[in-house]
Design a protein around this nucleic acid. Structure first.
Lengths: 223, 223
DNA sequence: GGCCGCCTCACCCGATCGGGTGAGACCCTC
DNA sequence: GAGGGTCTCACCCGATCGGGTGAGGCGGCC
């Protein structure tokens, strides 16, 4: 794990439908020691073929490409070659793609006006396992995280409930009927009803539907 | 909007309970043109007092401080002085604090071993409205975003439903009873039941509880 | 015109649910 | 040992729900 990756050469591939961009990027990379461009593809499908033939460490991926776009290509590539890192390059930092790219498994998101040195550093970073984002992209992520509801403390939500009630509650939020709960917890239907009534009273809710809503709204369960 | 912020001097405050750290950070900032340290605080409460007296553009905030920690201080500060940006500095990049800091309204998250130049750049960046994250913090955010379920296309979820059914569905997921739905949509209870039955049939679900679960699980509704 | 989908409403039935009350057994604490 | 909380179960009642069936009106489409 503590191997000095700096001594290994990094095998880079370029995927972009514009030949001019490919050669420009190619030139930007070749000036760096330790970086080799081993493949160039004009669309995603072609890149996937090349990935089967060559070992690729880092792909510089355009988003807009015919046949298979950069996002889908990233997802497929990462599925079949988890070792290969993807650095997405866009013409402008259209942050509409940032989230899709990251979800697809991209390690970085930069604009094409990135300097040669920054690009070289970025390639080395993502190859080392770090993530690299353009400032605008970073801001998007920060904004996003700031709006995401914070995870709640489950224990405080469950505080008013007894052990048995928590078990019943756990079943309730799955949509189980009283009979199903009884079966799963080895209880009588009557007993389950008692616990359900206690839960409804403690939460001051009308019926099990509202219990489910309560659970999702409070983040007690989440998808 | 297109004013050249570079010509304005940036007023910086430092909040850290260790005097040695404060003076070291102070020294790192003063070497930069355009950056002035206008306040130093040894805890969050002190910083908040100083913020009422001075105009502060950027705060370099330690996380661990007595009385009021950096996270809570950030939240309070941002609430009362939205103009003031917060750059959180931690001893090690304990990413347990990254999300809390961002949620509290921090614009940046760096470790204290950041170089003087990087720190100066970071201060200028956050003052300009960008976000700055340490590489490790960036990786945390990227990992987080990658695990967040993607927002679903509502239209495709609603595809099988008629206009009226969608309205009833919208009421269903709020936990409304058939009578409440009837009241709100100016329908008979019998008619509502017909629509509910149609919805259950199309989703192949047993009862309204499962409809609510379906809605949350698919992201049709979210908190 | 005829067909079909949608919306509306009605009635019936059995199942499920929620509310109320009571009670026995157990365990822990004062 | 008296009291309180928990867990278990029982019975009753009325409300709600889901399933089945039928039917009239309306609008669009072939």
């Amino acid at each position: 794990m503590t191997e000095t990756a700096a001594t290994e050469r990094i095998r880079v591939a370029i995927a972009d439908d514009q030949a001019l961009i490919r050669s420009a990027v190619h030139a930007m990379i070749e000036v760096h020691d330790g970086l080799d461009v081993v493949a160039e593809a004009s669309d995603g499908a072609e890149l996937l073929e090349l990935a089967r033939a060559h070992r690729i460490d880092v792909v510089l991926m355009d988003v807009r490409m015919p046949r298979l776009d950069g996002i889908e290509t990233t997802a497929l590539l990462r599925r079949d070659h988890p070792h290969t890192r993807v650095l997405v390059l866009t013409t402008y930092d259209l942050d509409e793609y940032v989230f899709a790219a990251i979800r697809a498994g991209a390690s970085g998101f930069l604009t094409k006006d990135t300097s040669s040195d920054e690009l070289g550093d970025a390639i080395r970073s993502v190859h080392a396992g770090d993530s690299v984002l353009a400032p605008r992209a970073t801001a998007s992520l920060v904004d996003f995280v700031a709006t995401v509801p914070e995870p709640v403390d489950t224990e405080s939500l469950l505080a008013p409930f007894t052990a048995r009630e928590r078990e019943v509650l756990g079943q309730l939020v799955t949509g189980a009927s009283n009979d199903e709960i009884a079966e799963r917890l080895y209880l009588t239907g009557n007993t389950v009803k008692t616990h359900v009534k206690a839960i409804l009273a403690k939460l001051d809710l009308r019926d099990r539907v509202h219990v489910v809503i309560w659970a999702y709204e409070r983040g007690f369960v989440s998808r």
